[in-house]
Amino acid sequence: MVEVLIVGGGPVGLYLAALLLQEGVKVRILEQRTGRDLHSRAIGIHPPALAALESAGVADTMVEAGVQIRRGVAISGGRTLGSMSFAPVSDRFPFVLSLPQFTTETLLEERVNHLDSSALVRGARVTDIADDGGRVTVSIDGTPGPGGRNPSTRLSAQLLVAADGSRSSVRGLLGIKARPRSYPDHYVMGDFEDSGGHRQEAVLYLEAGGIVESFPLPGGVRRWVARVDRPTQVPDAGELARIVHRRTGVRPEPATNTMLSAFSPRSAMAQRSVAGRAVLIGDAAHEISPIGGQGMNLGWLDAAELAPLICAALAGEPVGRRLQAYAAGRRKAARLARWQSEVNMTLGRPLPRPLLALRSHAIGAVAGIPAANRLVARRFTMQ
Rank of each mutant, 00 (worst) to 15 (best):
R70W: 07
V319I: 05
A333P: 11
L356T: 14
L260G: 00
G8S: 01
V12N: 03
A362C: 13
L298K: 09
I369H: 07
V4C: 05
W224L: 12
A377T: 03
E54H: 01
F93I: 05
S98Q: 09
E23I: 02
V343A: 09
K26Y: 00
A49L: 10
R125P: 09
L159V: 15
D302P: 04
W339I: 14
H198F: 08
S76V: 05
I129F: 05
F95G: 00
I291L: 15
T61P: 04
V212W: 00
R36N: 05
R379G: 15
T34C: 10
Q158M: 07
Y326E: 07
G82F: 09
Q101K: 04
T137C: 13
R28L: 08
A365I: 09
T232V: 07
G220W: 12
E64K: 15
V203N: 15
A278L: 01
E342L: 08
R246Q: 09
V27C: 05
H245P: 11
R227L: 13
R374I: 13
I6V: 11
A162I: 12
I43M: 10
L97Y: 02
A42R: 11
A52T: 03
N150E: 06
H114I: 15
R330F: 03
R322M: 03
M382E: 05
G145N: 15
R36I: 04
G209S: 14
S83E: 12
L217P: 06
G77P: 01
R374F: 06
L351M: 11
